[in-house]
Design a protein around this nucleic acid. Structure first.
Lengths: 217, 217
DNA sequence: TAGATTGTTAATCGATTAACAATC
DNA sequence: TAGATTGTTAATCGATTAACAATC
């Protein structure tokens, strides 16, 4: 039994990537993969792939590398593919609706069971197959539906308030799309996707490169 | 003149965050901020804030900290807020439409000038204020419109092909939302946002915590 | 002044990289 | 066997953290 406590967030991300790649390989009939095959497809080194897989208890052979089936088996167990994830979504704007369409297709066991919005016209309606509730009832709904994860897709101003509601309702993991670092003191795992920050990064490096070209010419 | 070549992607991300926070402080009438104020709001340490700001050439005083106006001034110059960013979007599905709605409101100088989709019914139409073109014409459109950045919001299978088109058309930065690491050999800056990977991370840590509770009880 | 913060330097920590014997 | 890969250990690198004199 591998010790999961020592696994970093980065490593979990890489494992998620290996799982996807392994599934692709299986779909194309590949039975064995080398560490450098996984590394070349991804963004890491063969040595790191081997370290990551060793954490999972997967071992390969010099002759054939790693068994794809064995890999998928281990990774599915690691990510608990058999367990259904019960998720709540806050914010049913453009981004929220995109997420409602995105997840069922890609992660069938990640189920967004309830959504919340402050817009009164959305309350009670079923949007993209998911019922939208009043934020006032957030605690009751999350409790009744036994939801353990929350997705935040509301504007920056409202994000932390929603996060507080989520934490108070007993949610243990949050995927945050609002461009604000959440201030939460409880033991809740937060992953933030700051789209504007990513855009700023690309913009900076594009400008930077064009300036380099200017000065070199 | 600070040496921008040595600035890491992470540091650029933090600077993007400082800019947002500084703007918020200015809007609420705050004139000076200490490094620990910026650090407390964000996800870093006061020492790192100081290092980051020193890279920009910003210096504070022990008595008052950093001038908010000076900070915003420097950060705006750093990110080239006066320059309009000319952007192309590939994929006008749910996510693509969400991005088309998202950016104009939050980054007025980041202009998505053209979109591309393989769906024939979308071609020629103006969706969310942006004309959708045939992918066949990607090179011409990008060239004519002098576009330097691309956003990829297509399914995983098509992502790398689109990226190749972008690179061939002379694009120098890519924001990738497809859950695939892009294989590009050119000198193009790529930032990837892998939503399913983020979800997998949250799922893992939520499960992990619940297992810890099981074993401790 | 006293207290808190700044910029700067040294120490620590972790992660990545390189090297190598064992294995198929 | 020969060659390539595996698992493992040592070395390097970078980033974060801690410590401290200078400053307002």
């Amino acid at each position: 039994m591998p010790d999961h406590n020592s696994i970093s967030s980065k490593a979990v991300g890489r494992l998620s990537l290996y799982r996807r790649l392994a599934n692709e390989f299986r779909n194309t009939g590949v039975e064995h993969v080398y560490s450098h095959t996984l590394a070349a497809e991804g963004v890491t080194t063969p040595a790191q792939v081997r370290r990551d897989l060793m954490l999972l208890g997967c071992s390969g052979t010099p002759a054939k590398g790693y068994s794809v089936d064995e890999l998928i088996e281990s990774l599915n167990t690691f990510f608990g593919v058999d367990e259904v994830q019960r998720i709540a979504l806050a914010g049913v704007g453009n981004l929220g609706r995109a997420l409602l369409a995105y997840f069922p297709a890609r992660r069938p066991n990640a189920k967004i069971l309830a959504s919340f919005d402050c817009d009164p016209t959305k309350r009670g309606r079923v949007i993209m197959g998911c019922r939208c509730y009043d934020i006032e009832h957030i605690s009751n709904v999350i409790d009744e539906m036994d939801i353990s994860m929350g997705i935040i897709a509301v504007p920056a101003e409202a994000a932390n308030e929603i996060a507080d509601h989520f934490v108070a309702a007993g949610i243990r993991g949050i995927l945050n799309f609002a461009p604000v670092p959440l201030k939460i003191n409880d033991r809740v795992h937060v992953e933030s996707m700051d789209i504007t920050m990513m855009l700023d990064k690309v913009v900076y490096f594009v400008r930077e490169e064009s300036h380099e070209q200017d000065s070199s010419s």
